[in-house]
């Protein structure tokens, strides 16, 4: 049986890769107990979305590359989010002496 390889990388390959990255991020976001790992999972999800934007920009919008501009804005917002998120995390750690997500339940019930 002979497998014919595609001559160029199909768009669907990038979309599937982004889907893998995004779903891994969602699973990590739900199941992590360390707060730092939650932030890392969010970064994984943002990168998955960025791969989608860049693939569409290259394959379907080759002249006006609007997807790349969007990806730059997403990177900017992700940097701001990481800074504020880690500051909140440090503040939480100073107050509660733990990074366990299960114990950050002050506002829960």
């Amino acid at each position: 049986m002979e497998i014919t390889l595609p001559s160029t990388i199909p768009l669907q390959a990038y979309l599937a890769l982004a889907a893998v990255l995004f779903c891994t991020g969602v699973w990590g976001l739900i199941n992590s107990r360390n707060a730092v790992r939650v932030l890392m999972s969010i970064e994984l999800m943002l990168n998955g979305v960025n791969i989608n934007l860049m693939a569409f920009s290259s394959y379907l919008d080759g002249q006006l590359i609007r997807g790349q501009v969007f990806a730059i804005f997403v990177i900017t917002v992700a940097a701001a989010e990481a800074a504020v998120g880690l500051a909140i995390l440090l503040s939480l750690y100073r107050n509660r002496e733990t990074v366990d997500m299960e114990r950050f339940n002050l506002l829960r019930w």
Binding site: A35, M40, E43, N50, S57, S58, I65, I72, I75, A79
Partner: peptide, 30 residues
């Protein structure tokens, strides 16, 4: 690979250079 050299450079500078280092510092602190 997608012909986006500027975004690739921004990704390396912002994510690897800033966000990842920030996360490492947070890990070292907590």
């Amino acid at each position: 690979l997608l012909n986006a050299s500027f975004v690739a450079a921004a990704q390396v500078l912002v994510y690897v250079g800033a966000v990842n280092v920030l996360i490492l510092f947070a890990i070292m602190l907590v």
